[in-house]
Design a protein around this nucleic acid. Structure first.
Lengths: 130, 130
DNA sequence: TACGTGTTCTATATCATATAGAACACTATT
DNA sequence: AATAGTGTTCTATATGATATAGAACACGTA
């Protein structure tokens, strides 16, 4: 159905994990405008969490304009965001890292090399999957 | 004395902000092994926070081996970490960003360009300063 | 001695997170 | 028409992290 994973050990709240992954699914085009997301009770069952938690993620996405709905119907992907919006979000996430690296004394070249190195070897994690 | 700033609006807990900044001061060499950090009551007064909060940061740093102390004396910088250790910490911070960028569909080249762009225009923030 | 340390203790308050169950109005399906 | 599945709202509880607060203690230093 959808490709969502939650990591209970993570410091990131479960509802934020769902929130971000659905956002990414929409950004990447794996979920297109008009696609229905799983009902809160369904997804909650698959992930073995409470449906209120799923709803918390959905309402945050609705607040962002990424999900829309009509009474009694399911949540639906509202729109894909523009490239620029995606970039600015990624930027926001990366800025802390860059600031810290500079604060520690790394040069711009060292940071770029670090990025290259990071882009090579990557790994994944385990968790509840739906 | 030391260059520490706390941002109350931030989602990052105050004691974590202090923790990270002292770590960075040690990594960058602005604080060298043997240097004394401000007493918890002193720094708390400057930042206008509770001294227990400062102590929380210091104890976390002590747990990491970055601060050492002898009974009745002040906390002292224990050691500068190796380059590799610094890198691995920065890596850990940056990995989330990269994973997300890839999940959204950005290519490696696009990510590298984004990094270059981020390294050009940067800004700072306001907050209590000591 | 007096002061400043870090430490420990108890206490309180707030907020975020997460779960839980019930009831409701609405839609879609049968 | 009846049933099942929606999201929504309500109250409730539990836990953990965060932050503040004040007191007392042992120790080192001036």
């Amino acid at each position: 159905m959808v490709d969502i994973t939650v990591e209970f050990n993570s410091k990131v709240p479960v509802y934020i994990q769902i929130y971000e992954q659905i956002k990414d699914l929409a950004y990447s085009g794996k979920l297109k405008p008009g696609d229905r997301v799983p009902s809160s009770r369904t997804l909650a069952g698959l992930l073995e969490i409470n449906y209120h938690t799923v709803n918390q993620a959905y309402q945050a996405l609705w607040k962002d304009g990424l999900l829309k709905m009509e009474r009694g119907k399911r949540y639906v992907i509202a729109k894909g965001k523009t490239e620029n919006e995606v970039y600015s979000e990624i930027e926001e996430e990366g800025r802390d890292m860059i600031n810290r690296a500079l604060r520690v004394g790394l040069t711009e070249d060292e940071i770029m090399n670090l990025m290259k190195r990071m882009l090579k070897g990557r790994n994944g994690g385990a968790g509840n999957h739906a």
